[in-house]
Design a protein around this nucleic acid. Structure first.
Lengths: 197, 197
DNA sequence: GTCTATACAAAGATAGAC
DNA sequence: GTCTATCTTTGTATAGAC
């Protein structure tokens, strides 16, 4: 696919993203990147004037990428709401299979007070966008009779989104790969539970 | 109640805990405590030889405190399972009313790789204990006909625990105090949903 | 674009006086 | 128990040569 050799700037971005997802923003340094890429710290400053600039660039790319994915999934008329949800689960299940990696914004949320303002806003937008997307899908699925919702779509979306992000946090600690699988299965079960009242 | 004047060591512990819950372990320094308490950095080292020792002391106290609370709640035969759950929600709702505070272990989980081994183990034990406690309560409530579970107790416990921890993470970012309230309401609704299949 | 060299601040920690 | 003074390391960042 992408056979274009990556520029140094891109390699820095990739590495920085990975480091943030595994260690956190405040816990990676130019030195880490310098070592991994075999160039000097000063050279990184040539591409990204400050750590804040680098962080913002990583976050913007991530937010744009997932924003596009969500739009694509929701726009495809072939998909059932359930299928869309399954697409949504995928990155979470992927992260859950790695020992330390979490969602970039989940990692950043844990250190909000240490982030430059632009990054805080980016994380905030990401969270709101995902909760809204989930709420829309749940509403759609309920309207089609695919799902049974025990609570209004917006609240259920918050429950599920929190659970997915929370599961990443927990699995990083306990190291149990079943954590995320169980959460996803529990979500499916909640939605399949038929007829209440 | 507790009119005993706090020792310096206790005041350091209290302050350190609060700082970890609002900023994170790697983001508080002896200098912060020094300034707040009006003593020098070196004096803190007299009470806690290292930052790791201080962190471990804070965590042990926290884990012991909540461990005791959970045991007390679960042991009281007067309580319904639903009432026990409501007790469990309380600290989360409390944290959610503050702008930046989260569960101590939730904060620490976000920076596992930066923690001394003893702290990692403490967080791990905390998470496992809470998930097990929740699973027990859910099982008990289901057996008594108080709850309807769409998934097995252990998986449902992971869903709910993740959602509560995740909601703290999200509310710290979005600043929306309704985040936790919505999640708690959604959990209640899931459990109240009657008769499936 | 990458390098060497360096500035500057903040952190955790220790020694020893009081 | 608390202080002053100091050490050591690490981090971000800049200047200027190549």
């Amino acid at each position: 696919m992408k056979s274009t050799p990556e520029s140094t700037a891109d390699r820095i971005l990739d590495l920085a993203q990975n480091l943030i997802q595994t260690r956190g923003y405040s816990w990676f340094s130019y030195q880490d990147i310098s070592t991994a890429l075999g160039i000097r710290k000063a050279s990184i400053h040539y591409h990204f004037a400050s750590k804040a600039a680098l962080g913002i660039a990583v976050l913007d790319r991530y937010v744009a990428h997932f924003g596009g994915e969500l739009r694509k999934i929701a726009a495809d008329p072939k998909h059932t709401a359930r299928k869309m949800l399954e697409f949504y689960f995928e990155p979470y299940l992927h992260f859950a299979r790695t020992p330390d990696q979490v969602c970039l914004c989940g990692a950043l949320a844990g250190e909000m007070l240490a982030l430059p303002p632009e990054m805080r806003e980016g994380v905030d937008r990401f969270f709101r966008a995902h909760q809204k997307w989930l709420a829309d899908i749940l509403k759609r699925g309920a309207a089609r009779g695919e799902f049974t919702l025990a609570a209004p779509p917006a609240k259920t979306a918050r429950l599920f989104f929190g659970a997915l992000q929370g599961a990443l946090l927990v699995k990083r600690t306990t190291g149990d790969p079943a954590e995320m699988r169980d959460v996803v299965e529990a979500i499916r079960a909640q939605l399949d539970a038929k007829a209440r009242g």
